[in-house]
Amino acid sequence: MTDKPESIKKVSIICASGDIESVYATLIMSNGAVMEGMEANIFFTFWGINAVKKRSMNKIKTAVIGNPAMPIPSILGLIPGLSWLASKAMMWRMNQLDIPPVDEFLEMIQAGGGRVFVCKAAVDMFMVKKEQLWEGVEDIITVGTFYELAAGGQIIFT
């Protein structure tokens, strides 16, 4: 019998984009981690910060221009509202599959012990105030603190 590799005990996931794909990859992987009994830290930075801003968190979108995976010609992306429509369709389908909106999803992750952080550099750069952030954000931290939190675990960049 071969030895089973040691299981992952902790993941720290960095979300640096504010599109549906990156944000949901982050949320699903974090939630999956806590459901498997692992520790999970999420670190939102750059445009990923939109996923934890009260005003934008449930309005994140997918790109219809410059997205080679999107099954429509990029030029059609110029049609006003198409990104909104494509995003609505994705969110509708996800909801059917019990994948919740961003705020509810983050609450689920926290219920399982997951922790949510925001990058200080992103907060400074985008001039975001603490009160604009979702209440569940535990802290605004530097990259150094992030590495301290991630110690001994795996780091994932979405």
Partner: peptide
Amino acid sequence: DIKGLYSLFPGGPLK
């Protein structure tokens, strides 16, 4: 609720 489920079945609420 989900938090309650985690405390009933620690480390694997659904599993």
